[in-house]
Design a protein around this nucleic acid. Structure first.
Lengths: 204, 204
DNA sequence: ATCATTTTTAAACACTTGTTTAAATTAGTT
DNA sequence: AACTAATTTAAACAAGTGTTTAAAAATGAT
């Protein structure tokens, strides 16, 4: 699991677990120290403050989050294959880290989070050239001519919301954790079917 | 706006604003009191505790949230029209209260929130008979035969996520509040087009 | 006007918060 | 071994937390 066993790394890993599950304002420095099995003062010894530790964690989480995304976008494959793979990989990744989408969207809406923390890595998506590729595919008629911001939105909505709204969905349909996990496997197939069908309408 | 001007109602309204924007753990009793222009002690005088006040607010917010939903589901209209209307009304309602979807999903995932607060009103959706109606429409072939939990998930994903992920989307596409509001108007049309096309495939 | 009741206030309660301090321990170097 | 620097600790700091108290003010009834 954790490749680095230094005190600093152990605190960072503990902070990652606590922050992603409870959010910045949902936990205390002492809770993080306890999770790491460390003294409270060590948190500030290595990271200066709770906020700076959060920034480091947030940055790391965003990096992980973007990694598989960027991989897919840079592949030498037809756009339709890329979209299909994107959905597959997103479900695969988030199934392993189900708390991450909710963590990211809620912390991105917190106005206290500095702009420098938000901007940095987001642009890496655009830098893969995926938007230009979509634009070209729209010109050739391969892809439906919809606004690319909406295309992003549709993709992310259907990949991330099912994990963010787990609690809500379980109450509506009265299903436990195990059943919901199965539901998501099934749901992924519907999402692929719907998204591909919509974004790449079969030529007549 | 506020029909009731009693101290109790003013505190409740202030709490609603603060809780929905910052979450339970993101604000203090004093912040709520200040927002209401009241003394801190009054919060507990009328609501016993921060948690009980939260429960009252949560209940109220859920009620508002469910209201237009239930209205649409109980209409005497073809299912396809209902789904179309559902999307229209959701965008209309959430545009007026953009903080609500994020508030609900994140608080539904907080394990400290008692089950009694979660269960109560959720069942009202099922009680409208919408799921039976969908099931019937699937038998007659009017509606695509997908799992009804997934149907719910797809609908909610595409209606709520665009508001929850506002901060994230604005960073990815570098757009300001006004531009994003316009984007959502456009996006709603794409969502309707995609959802109707998928759930109610044209008969050949 | 007097009284009891309700509402509002300022102050305090015990506890937690993020952070700092200064001493203790450990590790590394010569 | 002795000395220096890095690490870890317990303790304390001031400020903030939810909550309670007891007195003050406002209200309504007789």
């Amino acid at each position: 699991m954790s490749k680095d066993t230094t005190t600093e790394a152990k605190i960072k890993e503990a902070a990652k677990r606590v922050f992603t599950n409870k959010g910045f304002s949902g936990c205390s420095s002492r809770e993080i120290a306890k999770e790491a099995g460390m003294n409270v003062a060590l948190v500030n010894y290595y990271f200066r403050s709770k906020e700076q530790l959060f920034n480091v964690v947030f940055h790391t989480v965003m990096d992980d989050f973007m990694l598989s995304m960027k991989d897919v976008f840079r592949m030498k494959q037809p756009l339709e294959t890329k979209v299909r793979l994107f959905i597959e990989r997103e479900y695969e990744f988030i199934t392993k880290h189900p708390e991450i989408p909710g963590f990211i969207v809620s912390e991105m809406n917190r106005c206290e989070v500095g702009d420098s923390n938000k901007q940095f890595i987001m642009d890496e998506i655009a830098e893969t050239g995926i938007f230009e590729e979509m634009h070209q595919a729209q010109i050739t008629g391969e892809m439906r001519k919809i606004d690319l911001c909406s295309a992003t939105l549709i993709l992310m909505s259907n990949c991330h919301f099912p994990f963010i709204a787990k609690g809500l969905m379980q109450e509506i349909h009265h299903i436990d954790d195990e059943k919901y996990a199965q539901q998501l496997v099934l749901h992924k197939q519907y999402v692929i079917e719907m998204m591909i069908g919509y974004l790449f309408p079969a030529k007549k």
